[in-house]
Design a binder for these strands. Sequence first.
RNA 1: GGAGGGGUGGCAGAGUGGUCUAAUGCGGCGGUCUUGAAAACCGCUGUGGGCGCAAGCUCACCGGGGGUUCGAAUCCCUCCCCCUCCGCCA
Length: 434
Amino acid sequence: MLDIKLIREQPEFVRERLAARGVGDDRKLDEVLALDRKLREALKEGDSLKEQRNKSSKEIGALIGQKKNAEADAKKAEVRTIGDRIGLLDKEIAATEAARDELLLALPNLPNVKVAIGKTAEDNPVVRVHGVPAKFDFKPKNHIELCESLKLIDFARGAKLSGSGFLLYTNWGARLERALINFLLDLHTREHGYTEVSPPFIVNGEVMTGVGQFPKFKDQAFWVRRGLDDDTMGKQFLIPTAEAPVANIHREEILAEKQLPIYYCAYSPCFRAEAGAAGVGTRGMIRVHQFDKVELVKIVKPEHGFAELDKMVANAERVLQVLGLHYRVIQLCTGDMGFASGMTYDIEVWAPGQGTFLEVSSCTNCEEFQSRRMNLRFKSDTGGNVFPHLLNGSGTALARLFVALVETHQRADGSVAIPEPLQPWLKADSIPAT
RNA sequence: GGAGGGGUGGCAGAGUGGUCUAAUGCGGCGGUCUUGAAAACCGCUGUGGGCGCAAGCUCACCGGGGGUUCGAAUCCCUCCCCCUCCGCCA
């Protein structure tokens, strides 16, 4: 959520930053400002009436104490009319504030001024490239062919169980997935200083709103209903990412400055309905309704936000380096950034079978956008309560990492070599050809 | 699912319609005393909003929401959460 004071005091700056994002329609900003003015006028009148009422009520108490009941009754009648006016104003205040906040919650974060200006993914600058594409002296297979020949994933039966977009990992496929999860968690906890947490996979609406998933992306979540009780619909949701529960761990808390920085990492499955996207170029495991991910979350002081973002990107890159994969890091331009983002770097891994880069990590500094939504603060040593920067990044998404891994390390005989650093987790040096 | 008990400041814990401006204790911060520390004593102690250059004034907040009343932590309704026991269950 944007700071209403910033919008009030520097509306032109906010307008310009939103335009950089491609939010062409800024009438909402004008609406916010109008509602805000209306709200403050009503608050001013209401507060002063309440002050009168408070004083008069005390006087009534004193009069009753002195047994001057007639005077007290007269005063009561007088205050009752003030009370009626307050009742009306309170309703107006609540409605105006709700309308203002609804609009505020629908406004995306402002791109940081350091972010490259652009309109689409075409405009995303490449920050750096690591390694080179794998070369093969045989005709390489794509991951679908590999998964079928090595029986890593049973696409047909996955669909039979749950519909398209759901995967049944089998045998070596299931073992590789588990090995990757454990490898990633161990890497980030042992070598990068993250504390492992294992969150609920179902969260409430406040949590979704806190990270900016709601209200905008309500149509992309899986909604949970308890049994046949329709009243429970819309109260709980399958998480689209561990970011949702983990970033909210300290919501509505005031942390001590010495607690920061906080680094969390968590494995979770991620559930995405992605309404409208199904069936379009979705064969295989590039875009699915459920995938595994190891997520990184940081809560840091604002002055450290961007240095911490760089470190987080480096932590995610390390995964690909250790696994011997070719990748590039790009910065999302102002027009391509996510809703809550102040600045985002994507890491894209090379998938030889696809002949493209696949996004396996998106590292974002949401600055105070999310902490403001979830009312997460820390008490600074200088006294005031401050919204910390909230960062999240994939470290990394599993399904696509799986794709890049098997496509990159496939061998002429149809087997897949396992990079040496991963071998202790899989307890094997290759996936044998069948 | 059934029965009962609870939710009050950082924590513990009083308060059941009117100096509640929420007692008291602990913790924390500052001070006095001391060579230093402890003890003792004194003072301070939360969050958010509005107005104001500021000093400050003011409003709201006792789990959430609604109601009764001139006035609600206190009474009423409703929802949420926690605890104990029973049932079911991995």
